[in-house]
C-alpha cells in the first residue's frame, strides 16, 4: 500500500515536471513580493503600492512578505535559493546586493546571483548639513572642516561611514564618527545641532527648511536635486553609492518572465497612485529597463569595490 502511494506521488511529480506552465502564461497563480525591511517603512510603503499595480497588470494576486534583517541581507540570502520560477520576486534598494556582500564576508550572495527586471525609483542619497551651516558645497565644507580642525559626522550605516572615510582621506579631514541607528537617529542629531555633517538616504527631505543638501552620493545627479553636484563632480573620483530600487529574480529565471515584469514596471512608473506615493515620500520615479538596471548594478558594485580598496576596508 505504502509502495503504491509512493509510486503515485512520484508519478504526480513526474507529470508536474513534464508539463511546465508556459512562461508566457506567467503568472498562473498568486505570486509573492519579498521586501527586506519591516512593514511600514519607505520601501515597504512603496512596495505595497507597486504590489497593487502589479496585481492589476499581471492579472494575479501579488502578496507582500517582509523578511527584515541585516539591511536586506536576511531576505536576499534566502531569496538566492528560491526556485527561479517567478513565484517570488524581490523589491528593494540595490545596495542590498552591491554594498552589503562586499563589506560583510559572512554573506553568501553577490549581485551576480540575481536577474534584474528593471528599476522603478531611486533613494536620494546625499551628503547633508544643518540649514544654518556656513557652507553650500563640498569645497565650502572642506574649508570649514579644516578651519574647525575636527568635525562631527552622523554615520547612519556602514556605507555612510565608508563614503565619509573616502572623502576624509582625499581631503585630509579629521572626523568624529557618531554612530546612529537609521535615518531618524541622524535627523535628531542634525536637528539638535550635535553634528556638522551627515549622510542621508533621502529622509531629510521630510524636514523642509532644516537641512542643506551639499552633494549627491550617486554617480549621476539625483531626480530631486538636479542642481546639487555629485561627489564625483566635486572631485572625489569613484566615491559614489547608487541606490535605485529594483525588482529582481533569482538567477536562472526564464527571460520571458523578466520581460513581462519589465513591461508591468513600465506601466507602474506612470501610474497615478505610484506618482502620488513617490511625491509624498520624496523618492522620485526613475524607470530603468532590465538592461539598464543590470548595467547599473554591475557598475555600482565595481565602483564600491574600488572605494573600499582605496580606504583599505577589511570585510568583517
Amino acid at each position: 500500500m505504502k509502495g503504491l502511494l509512493k509510486a503515485f506521488v512520484a508519478a504526480m511529480f513526474a507529470l508536474g515536471a513534464a508539463l511546465p506552465a508556459s512562461a508566457t502564461d506567467w503568472p498562473t497563480g498568486p505570486i509573492t513580493m519579498l521586501i527586506g525591511y519591516k512593514a511600514g517603512g519607505g520601501t515597504d510603503t512603496k512596495g505595497r503600492v507597486l504590489a497593487k499595480i502589479l496585481t492589476r497588470e499581471l492579472g494575479q494576486q501579488v502578496n507582500v512578505i517582509n523578511r527584515a534583517g541585516g539591511g536586506q541581507a536576511v531576505a536576499l540570502e534566502g531569496f538566492k535559493n528560491e526556485e527561479p520560477n517567478g513565484d517570488m520576486f524581490f523589491f528593494g534598494a540595490v545596495t542590498g546586493m552591491t554594498l552589503n556582500p562586499q563589506i560583510n564576508s559572512a554573506l553568501q550572495f553577490t549581485a551576480d546571483d540575481y536577474v534584474y527586471a528593471g528599476g522603478l525609483t531611486e533613494f536620494q542619497v546625499t551628503m547633508v548639513a544643518p540649514a544654518d551651516a556656513p557652507f553650500d558645497d563640498m569645497a565650502g565644507f572642506v574649508a570649514y572642516a579644516k578651519e574647525k580642525g575636527k568635525i562631527k559626522y552622523a554615520s547612519l550605516s556602514p556605507g555612510a561611514k565608508i563614503v565619509m572615510q573616502a572623502i576624509a582621506r582625499q581631503s585630509g579631514l579629521e572626523v568624529d564618527y557618531i554612530p546612529t541607528k537609521g535615518g531618524r537617529g541622524m535627523v535628531q542629531l542634525v536637528l539638535s545641532g550635535q553634528v556638522d555633517f551627515a549622510y542621508s538616504g533621502g529622509i531629510h527631505a521630510r524636514y523642509p527648511g532644516k537641512f542643506k543638501t551639499i552633494a549627491a552620493v550617486s554617480t549621476r545627479r539625483l531626480g530631486n536635486y538636479p542642481d546639487t553636484e555629485t561627489l564625483v563632480e566635486a572631485g572625489y573620483e569613484g566615491v559614489a553609492i547608487d541606490a535605485p530600487t529594483v525588482v529582481a529574480f533569482p538567477k536562472g529565471i526564464d527571460p520571458a518572465i523578466v520581460a513581462k515584469m519589465e513591461a508591468a514596471l513600465k506601466v507602474a512608473s506612470t501610474d497615478p497612485d505610484m506618482m502620488k506615493i513617490s511625491k509624498s515620500i520624496n523618492m522620485p520615479i526613475v524607470y530603468q529597463t532590465a538592461a539598464e538596471a543590470s548595467e547599473l548594478v554591475k557598475e555600482s558594485a565595481a565602483a564600491i569595490r574600488v572605494m573600499l580598496d582605496t580606504i583599505g576596508y577589511k570585510a568583517s
Binding site: 511600514g40 517603512g41 519607505g42 515597504d44 510603503t45 523642509p208 532644516k210 502620488k276 506615493i277 511625491k279
Partner: peptide
C-alpha cells in the same frame, strides 16, 4: 510616520 507619509503629510515643526 509611515501612515502620515502615505497621506502626504510630514510630521514635524510645520
Amino acid at each position: 510616520i509611515g501612515a502620515f507619509t502615505i497621506q502626504g503629510i510630514t510630521p514635524g515643526p510645520l
